[in-house]
Amino acid sequence: MARQQAQNTGQEELRRRGRSNLTWILLVLTCLVVLAGPTMVVLFLGMLPTVVALIIDRTKQKSTTFCVGSVNFIGVFPFIMTLWTDINTFDAAILTVSDIFNLLVMYSAAAFGWFLFLTMPPIISSFVIVLQQRKVAQLRGEQKDLIEEWGTEVASIVEMRKTAKQEQHMEHGVEGTGHHRGHRT
């Protein structure tokens, strides 16, 4: 019961914080639209794939968003630079984004970002797995050396921790059973 209450309180807190963030984003965007409207038009329409990535990326790290967004930005940034160096008006901005070739460049960059995100992580993860396995083997080797030199008693602290953990589990188990029983009654 207490745990559920705490969970509910946490969700409420998150929701409140999300609402507050959205308010701030809208405020900043409004300011940016007022101050740099043409740039914002190109940026918004050019970065639409990133917005889509942001929407579909449910991970906490938002790696997909950052990956797609970064490469997408490379495709959009030259047109923004053109705006900034030539004519920085809404018409010029509309003209830029209405050119299919320009859009193809921007969205192709986004597509490359997606490509990167889909191909790179498995390759990197296989490297990471190999490295981790080597690390574990090295640590196990060190532990074996310690046992050879000091006997199995050297693992007494670890054993104690494990025992304590098990006891804790047991206690929680007993508590849980009691809790369920409490519900039934």
Partner: peptide, 26 residues
């Protein structure tokens, strides 16, 4: 889940690479 952790690490690394690439390109 070692594979999951490694994949997440790979995703993070890719994102970092993309950001770095973006900054260089910019």
């Amino acid at each position: 889940d070692q594979k999951k952790v490694a994949l997440e690490a790979g995703e993070r690394t890719t994102a970092m690479l993309a950001i770095t690439l973006s900054m260089i390109a910019t």
